[in-house]
């Protein structure tokens, strides 16, 4: 592990943050009446698409673990399809979890699903980019002491902070302030976004701060 690695990580994360900020401001030039709160669903779609795109591009450019031995086209295609299936599955399972948490079952299904998509974008997509459709590897990364590189470490931090952000985002809902952002699922999506951004910001800093103490098995 070197400082250059950390620097690359920081730049990558800054690009991700930049894409989220762009997704807030750019569409208002093309779409009328666009605002994050009022046309929330549109923003959700745009935001998830842009974050996914940035993640994919960065993955192809930076290649944090470029050690794929077989690189035949069929392998790549199956791998891509698998990734898509994993993504959809994660969307649906998040949706189920939200319903279990008390989201309405029939009404607002689209809203709930888009929240699930957004959360998957913030958590599953980076995992798929970095670890591929490999469930064992995921479990390894998300258990204690299973991290093998700073990329995985930052992945862990951003994912956990996105979850925690969504979780905390549900708290203002019962308050009787009557603000527009207390509507389901706006506070949760905002919480997820803030959590993701906070994870993106803190993880390089945290890794830099603890660089002496961190040792990874493969490095």
């Amino acid at each position: 592990m070197k400082d250059t690695d950390i620097k690359r990580l920081l730049y990558v994360h800054l690009l991700c943050i930049f894409s989220i900020i762009l997704s807030i401001f750019i569409p208002s030039f093309f779409l009328e009446n666009f605002s994050v709160l009022e046309t929330h669903l549109t923003w959700l779609c745009i935001c998830s698409v842009s974050v996914t795109a940035v993640n994919l591009v960065l993955y192809l450019v930076v290649k944090p673990n470029a050690s794929s031995k077989r690189s035949s086209l069929s392998y790549k295609v199956t791998r891509f399809l698998k990734c898509c299936i994993y993504f959809l599955m994660s969307c649906f399972s998040f949706h189920v979890i939200f319903v279990l948490y008390g989201a309405p079952l029939i009404e607002l299904a689209l809203e709930t699903f888009l929240l699930a998509v957004t959360l998957s974008t913030f958590t599953t997509v980076p995992c798929l980019c970095l670890l591929g459709p490999n469930f064992k590897a995921w479990l390894r990364v998300f258990s204690r002491n299973g991290v093998t590189s700073i990329w995985e470490n930052s992945l862990q931090i951003t994912t956990v902070s996105s979850f925690v952000g969504t979780w905390l985002g549900a708290f203002p809902i019962p308050l009787d302030w009557g603000r527009p952002w207390q509507e389901w699922p706006i506070s949760c999506t905002l919480g997820a976004t803030f959590g993701y951004v906070a994870g993106l910001v803190t993880s390089p800093l945290w890794i830099y701060w603890n660089r002496k103490k961190l040792t990874y098995k493969n490095n």
Binding site: R144, N145, V147, I157, W206, W209, N210, K213
Partner: peptide, 11 residues
């Protein structure tokens, strides 16, 4: 590490 704020994950 454990004393750091993120100690939860690396534990």
């Amino acid at each position: 590490v454990a004393a750091a704020p993120q100690g939860k994950s690396t534990g």
